[in-house]
């Protein structure tokens, strides 16, 4: 059964897709960079011998989302899995003084997802089958001064996916919320992160694939982030606000 990937440029998206492709699922890669999309599709076709399609998608071009979703369900009528990966880390400091940056962070990580995901959800709901996976972040579990713009958008996304899961349960459609920790991608490259806590996209991709196939609700990836966030969340606010995080 085919998989739709929104934000195919992401290494996490490609790693998760590789697992689907190995298992023989057709893949529709969607994103903004058409040249890159066709390169990815060509590479997957050689590596895994699966049919790959590409479709232009811009998360911030809300007006065209309906047409996009109609198109993908037309070119791939059996579409059953949707993986929503796109996002934008942005710069916290810039976002504090420049609302354009803050707006872009919020729209890329939240508004854009809501716009596209609702349309996919509606289609799956009417078919009474399907599976949606949304990449949120551990950053959404607690706001910190170093990236609360990004974190708050992801927090919204976590709550959004929670509600969507609740709504679609009765239709037999699964919604998975994915909360990755630090992942070694171009987004985090060059940041001074603790080496031991940085996972490879491959590891995270495999976790996502397994959770989607098993129909899980929420996963932290790698798993130990569940413990880390449990501790982070348990710190009383009176103390937390004084920390340099």
């Amino acid at each position: 059964m085919p998989l739709l990937v929104l934000g195919a440029n992401s290494l996490i998206a490609q790693a998760a897709s590789a697992n689907f492709a190995e298992a023989g699922h057709e893949i529709i890669f969607a994103g903004r960079n058409k040249e890159e999309l066709s390169k990815i599709a060509g590479d997957f076709n050689i590596r895994y011998k699966v049919n790959c399609l590409t479709e232009y998608f811009d998360a911030l071009d809300y007006a065209n989302h309906r047409k996009f979703v109609e198109t993908v369900f037309t070119i791939s009528p059996e579409l059953n899995y949707a993986l929503i990966v796109f996002g934008y880390l942005g710069t916290q400091e810039k976002a504090q003084s420049d609302f354009t940056e803050a707006h872009k962070i919020i729209n890329s990580n939240y508004t854009g997802v809501v716009s596209a995901c609702e349309l996919i959800a509606a289609e799956f709901e009417s078919r009474k089958k399907g599976s949606i996976a949304i990449i949120s972040s551990v950053a959404g579990d607690r706001g910190r001064q170093s990236n609360y713009m990004y974190g708050s958008a992801k927090a919204g996304l976590s709550a959004y996916s929670q509600g969507l899961r609740n709504r679609l349960f009765k239709s037999g459609v699964n919604v998975l919320t994915i909360k990755p920790g630090f992942v070694d991608t171009p987004m985090t490259y060059g940041m001074p992160l603790p080496k031991l806590l940085v996972a490879s996209p491959k590891k995270v991709g495999k976790d996502i694939y397994k959770a989607m196939i098993k129909g899980k609700n929420v996963i932290y990836t790698p798993f130990y982030w569940w413990w880390i966030m449990k501790i982070v969340k348990s710190i009383p606010e009176t103390i937390f606000k004084k920390l340099k995080l």
């Binding site: 290494l11 390169k39 990815i40 060509g42 590479d43 050689i46 590596r47 171009p186």
Partner: peptide, 16 residues
């Protein structure tokens, strides 16, 4: 390492 795509493969001649 991130520029790691296969671009084409000629299966009959084994040229990648």
């Amino acid at each position: 390492v991130l520029m790691n795509r296969f671009l084409s493969f000629d299966e009959s001649r084994g040229i990648v």
